[in-house]
Design a protein around this nucleic acid. Structure first.
Lengths: 168, 168
DNA sequence: GACACTACGTCAGCCTTGTTGACATTCCAA
DNA sequence: TTGGAATGTCAACAAGGCTGACGTAGTGTC
């Protein structure tokens, strides 16, 4: 069977077989379940859900972010986000400040209590991630990140990069 | 600062910093969105959801699987699964056969129509996975899989391995 | 100043998909 | 025969998505 691409020969492309891809798909499914399991347990005791976790996470990452900005990152409607945000503000975990330059905007911040919950959630999630990283080793981690980045929608990849830059 | 573990020195553990872990967490979040985006688009035109996709996927992987078995793999209640299965059976995508050895059990199979939808969904999902694999390269794929496997709950890892063995 | 537009909040209603609890049926096995 | 396992089904409920409509406040433009 001739190699239509020229450079890499058949065997070098074994990682692109349907069976390999299928295993990757299932690995994503099962791993994502593990990924969310620990925070989910904590949240359920507080009658919060994953949606609250996501909001808390990204507000913590980018303090002072606007509602619109958060909407784009999370990829939900403002009505959905608002429901979550309202409870977090009522419960004193998030503070909403009217913008100085543009008073239509609301800038979101975690309160001390909000930061405490964020820490609790991300400690649990990081512990699992750390264990997985340690078990797999540094080279595997590089590969892991490369594949994940390549799997994102371009727009989400931009959001992802932006968040990283903001912390460097 | 002394190295408490002995062997690897500080720099070798840079991949375990909180910032690295945080980036990994966000990468998982954004990548999973991409991972499900293509099937979701197809499903929404058929008034099906992700739950239907998951059922179809695993019935296709393990034809003749029982309801209970599927329950364990998917990690949902029988009532939840039943609602999904009922619509799939009504729509003629899934066939439920009474067990021969144990007539309490129902063995699940995809019909031709079900297989066609499965193919449509998995083609879309594999296309994205293939693009990501190709962009990242074979070494990255190995690392990707290693980290994902390490991130699973032990019970889910067993399910994952079992599915793989069944196809080899 | 009038007007269009933007950012945000909110109300109402709908859908999917998860949950619990209760109960019927069927059938295997002790 | 009787207990328990596997399954199906009904009802009720909640989280968290969605759309559509409407209100309000602030911005920017003509």
């Amino acid at each position: 069977m001739p190699d239509t691409l020229g450079a890499p020969r058949g065997e070098a492309l074994l990682f692109l077989t349907d069976e390999q891809l299928r295993q990757g798909i299932e690995a994503m499914f099962f791993a994502y379940r593990g990924f969310t399991a620990d925070p989910d347990r904590i949240l359920s005791t507080l009658s919060y859900g994953r949606a609250h976790h996501r909001a808390i996470h990204f507000i913590n990452c980018a303090p002072g972010t606007t509602v619109n900005n958060l909407l784009n990152i999370l990829g939900v409607t403002k009505q959905s986000l608002n429901r979550v945000l309202r409870t977090l503000i009522e419960d004193g975990l998030v503070e909403s400040r009217v913008g100085r330059a543009d008073k239509r905007e609301r800038h979101l911040y975690l309160t001390e209590e909000g930061k405490a919950l964020e820490r609790q959630l991300s400690d649990a999630q990081r512990a699992r991630m750390r264990a997985a990283y340690r078990a797999a080793g540094p080279e595997a981690v590089v590969g892991f990140r490369q594949v994940l980045e390549a799997m994102m929608d371009p727009e989400m990849r931009r959001n992802y990069m932006k968040l990283r830059e903001g912390r460097e």
